[in-house]
Write a protein that binds this DNA or RNA. Structure first.
Length: 598
RNA sequence: GACUCCGUAGCUCAGCUGGAUAGAGCAACUGCCUUCUAAGCAGUAGGUCAAGCGUUCGAAUCGCUUCGGGGUCACCA
């Protein structure tokens, strides 16, 4: 039985017997005791003093005394400071928890999700340019939340809805047609997505030129932007594409093919993957039947010009268009269709969309519509909204060339990891392959941790001038902690040190640092639960840092192999193993690998 | 303008279902490698939690107002 719950039960019993106050044990809130006081868990008595009609200190003392008598094997002592009852657990209890719980293979695997299917859609790139820093945040968040939901017991399907059609693609295509002169990734040695992106930039350059020229003839800038010839060409190309024009279609196939090769290389490098791909070229016509359905149900209404709307003024929103007067889809029409398709394909009642917060309003509307239509999956739609990554110069804008390219950044991180590692001679004795692998996991670990440790909802700052740190509150520092523990475990195996304690043996006294680490380990499941409920990888990231930090204090202070008591030595090896396991499992929830040596 | 999110140390961020003296990392300054990896540890300094009012035994946390910043409000995606 979980000691925290035993304590809650005992407190509830105490409140009843001592003060005739009835509370359900599970509603009692306990919080981790602050560092400056002795104890593991703290019961705040203030909420009960009115009913109890005694001073806070008295209530705390009486409940503390009651619990200690009630469950003496669990509690070794308590202290009361003002209205705070601090509970100290028996060290033996922590030892038992270590062996029976923290070391269990499935300690980090919860069953809350009951195997229910949930789809996580993330990445969802446009195929007209390479991935940038913002996409990295999206990809890391999407992958991590998938891992976290799996750990919560859900059956996760990772999906990528590729935006492979539309005016933006045609922009790259038209520019390529004009000035590409038959370039290919092979002929240029460029990654396919970068090659296509080059033409997207070329398009914009040309567009600007044409707009300027038009403005000089006396046309307003606004008008010029609509009338620029190259834009007209892109628009007519889109029409041709929709009509299935062979030449356009073939070019589109070819260029998208290049982009996919490029994206796949990036996905592989950064360690994200997908169970299913959707392509907008297959789904952009969907949703019209749902418009019909909505009209039939009276949820939508048709105007005289033929356009279809939904009135959300009762919900505090406004009227939204769901179908244009010419009968073509808008964004939300497609999203309605795709939601239905996803449900038909996989039957997920829960569906997570990892999409930037500039689309908050869009998703509010989408969810309202699905609910009004009475869709069985409407209540399970969750928009995992994340903030933009800002540069010191402000927002990233692809057209203005102020983006941080994903491939460049990843390569720089790995290169920096290599430099730092070599400086410190950390790879002496490594094979070439081992060293290369280390640079990759450290470089990526730094990058992923940097992007995941911040609350996803908040926008965050990335300064390309200052390279991402490898010391302090960083991925590599946590990886390093893991590697140091691995060295200890290797040595212990060489020395053939047993980790188990003889049956019936009770360890008398733990080091305070051991206790505080064990306290942290005991919170791993609830952190996984919290991260899942809140859709917050940062909860895990910060937790794992706390574990590593606290362990490092132990590491600096307490010797293992110089310990004379063989049983304490055994305990400490097992203790180290549990910490390593927690760090590894936690980092895997973030999509970060952990090295055995570094 | 309307709606919405945000404002915590010089910088980047935790803490926000109300609880004790607001925490980390970086940067600065002091120490610690003959002992399991110093990408580490210990310490010093750094805060009117944007401002004000309110609710409460108690507010960084909840409510209102003001100031400052981001985002969204297209028959764009």
């Amino acid at each position: 039985m979980n000691p925290e719950f035993l304590l809650k039960e005992s407190i509830a019993k105490g409140l009843l017997q001592e003060f005739s106050i009835t509370v359900a044990p599970e509603t009692i809130l306990l919080e981790p005791t602050r560092k400056d006081f002795e104890g593991s868990l703290t019961f705040v008595v203030f909420p009960f003093i009115k009913q109890a009609k005694v001073a806070p200190e008295q209530l705390g003392s009486r409940i503390g005394a009651f619990c200690q008598t009630d469950i003496p094997t669990v509690i070794s002592s308590f202290n009361v400071v003002k209205g705070f009852l601090n509970i100290v657990f028996n060290d033996a209890l922590w030892v038992e928890q270590l062996y029976t719980n923290f070391l269990r293979e499935d300690y980090a695997q919860l069953s809350d999700g009951k195997g229910e299917k949930v789809m996580v859609e993330y990445s969802s790139p446009n195929t007209n340019k390479p991935l940038h820093l913002g996409h990295l945040r999206n990809n890391f968040l999407g992958y991590s939340i998938s891992q976290i939901l799996k750990a919560n017991g859900f059956d996760v399907i990772k999906a990528n809805l590729v935006n492979d059609r539309g005016i933006h693609i045609c922009k790259s295509m038209i520019a390529y047609q004009k000035s590409g002169s038959g370039e290919t990734p092979v002929s240029t040695g460029m990654k396919g997505d970068h090659l296509v992106g080059k033409y997207y930039v070329a398009f914009d350059k040309q567009l600007k030129k044409e707009v300027e020229a038009l403005v000089e003839t006396g046309i307003s800038e606004e008008q010029a932007k609509k009338e620029a010839p190259i834009l007209k060409e892109a628009q007519s190309m889109l029409l041709k594409w929709e009509q299935g024009d062979k030449e356009v279609y073939d070019l589109w196939k070819t260029m998208n093919g290049w982009v996919y090769e490029g994206f796949n290389a990036t996905y592989k490098k950064i360690g994200v993957d997908f169970d299913h791909f959707y392509y907008e070229s297959n789904t952009y016509l969907l949703g019209k039947d749902i418009v019909e359905e909505g009209l039939a149900k009276g949820v939508f209404n048709k105007r005289a010009d033929g356009s279809v709307w939904i009135d959300l003024t009762a919900e505090g929103l406004d009227e939204k268009l769901v179908l244009r007067s010419d009968g073509t889809s808008v964004y939300i029409t497609q999203d309605l269709g795709t939601a239905e398709l996803k449900y038909n394909d996989f039957g997920c009642k829960r569906s997570v969309y990892v999409v930037g917060n500039e689309q908050d309003y869009h998703f509010v509307v989408l969810i309202h519509i699905l609910k009004k239509l009475g869709k069985p999956y409407a209540n399970g739609v969750y928009h995992m909204s994340y903030g933009m990554v800002d540069l010191p110069s402000g927002k990233m804008k692809s057209r203005e060339g102020t983006v941080v390219d994903a491939d460049d950044l990843v390569n720089e991180m790995i290169e920096t990891a290599k430099e730092r590692t070599l400086e410190q001679g950390k790879t002496d004795g490594f094979t070439e392959a081992e060293a290369t692998h280390l640079y990759e996991i450290v470089g990526l670990g730094a990058l992923k941790y940097f992007l995941l440790k911040v609350d996803p909802k908040k926008r965050m700052m990335f300064n390309p001038e200052e390279s991402i740190e490898f010391q302090g509150h960083t991925g590599p520092s946590i990886q390093y902690t893991y590697a140091r523990i691995s060295a200890i475990l290797r040595k212990a195996e060489e020395l053939n040190i047993k980790e188990a304690l003889p049956a019936g043996y009770k360890l008398e006294k733990l080091h305070p640092y051991e206790v505080s680490v064990l306290e942290l380990l005991s919170r791993f499941p609830e952190k996984i639960r919290e991260a899942g409920v809140e859709y917050s990888p940062s909860t895990i990231a910060n937790y794992i840092f706390d574990v590593a930090k606290e362990y490092n204090r132990f590491y600096a202070e307490v010797s293992i192999f110089h310990e004379e008591d063989e049983l304490i030595k055994s305990f400490r090896i097992a203790f180290c193993r549990a910490v390593a396991k927690t760090i590894k499992d936690g980092m895997l929830l973030l999509g970060i690998e952990v090295p055995e040596k570094m």
